[in-house]
């Protein structure tokens, strides 16, 4: 069974159709890269998966359980949406770290708040919180930021901030980790350190959906590639199929614009 199944997602803002009949599946442990030019709907699709936008049509299932169905209002209640979001993690283009917290606290805050809802929280408060802190330190260590745990976001470089943001998204152990152009806001010399981290996550078989403009990276890391244009999926398949030997003219045109930069 696929871990993620997206069926016929539609999204429009007023009269503008942003997503038209988007369907795809993703297997556990695989990385899916979504490529396409600006305005093709990639980011909106990612935002729909994270319930930041409500699709006008279609459904989203994780591990066979329907999380969202446009035809069924019962799947859209606010209180439940909050819990459903936890199936997904999202790393933003602009990091969106919380400026008033240290790197470590950025990673642990959401876990601490969720732990408060546990019935045994009061009794085991100390133990739970120290376990969360240990886990947070472990994640920062994994990102190569062990020595930056006490730094505030403004004291970190863009690449370091984005790695903290990845650790923060991983802290809640999402089923699927989403990246929205994770390196687009970074200086070119800083993209490498972030891509390296994502690559290592792929090697550990983290299930990921990555919206990216880095074609070489998508080709190397992704198991599946989707090319989107004007709100539709033009082509999907393995990197060898979509990036190396595109069948569609639109895909070829898009890729030819990137070939010079590689």
């Amino acid at each position: 069974m696929s871990i993620l199944e997206v069926r016929s997602i539609e999204k429009h803002f007023g009269a503008t159709e942003v997503l038209k009949d988007i369907s795809f599946t993703l297997e556990e442990g695989q990385a899916l890269a979504i490529i396409g030019s600006s305005g093709s709907g990639k980011t909106t699709l990612l935002r729909c998966l994270n319930f930041l936008e409500t699709p006008n049509g279609g459904s989203i299932s994780v591990r066979g359980k329907t999380l969202f169905d446009a035809a069924d209002p019962a799947t859209q209640r606010e209180a439940e949406v909050r819990k459903k979001r936890l199936h997904f993690g999202l790393v933003f283009q602009s990091f969106n770290l919380f400026p008033q917290y240290t790197a470590l606290k950025n990673v642990t805050l959401a876990s601490e708040l969720l732990a408060q809802e546990r019935p045994d929280f009061k009794a085991n408060r100390k133990k739970i919180l120290s376990a969360i802190e240990e886990e947070g330190k472990g994640l920062l260590d994994q990102m190569g930021l062990a020595d930056r745990a006490g730094h505030y976001p403004h004291q970190l470089s863009g690449g370091q901030q984005q790695r903290v943001a990845i650790a923060r998204a991983l802290a809640l152990r999402p089923d699927i980790l989403c990246f929205d152009e994770p390196t687009s806001a970074l200086d070119p010399e800083l993209t490498g350190e972030v891509l390296k981290v994502i690559r290592s996550l792929a090697e550990r078989h983290t299930t990921m959906v990555i919206v990216t403009h880095e074609m070489a990276f998508a080709r190397d890391v992704a198991d599946q590639v989707i090319f989107m244009d004007s709100g539709v999926i033009v082509e999907q398949g393995t990197p060898a199929q979509v990036i190396e030997n595109p069948r569609e003219e639109r895909t070829r045109q898009f890729l030819s614009r990137y070939s010079g930069t590689e």
Partner: peptide
């Protein structure tokens, strides 16, 4: 907006986002 959205995708409630994320800012 990204501050609210970051809180949302981390499963925080509206109250938690207000008091823990945005208020001090």
């Amino acid at each position: 907006r990204g501050q609210y959205e970051a809180g949302q995708v981390l499963g925080m409630t509206k109250g938690q986002i207000f008091f823990k994320v945005t208020l001090l800012q």
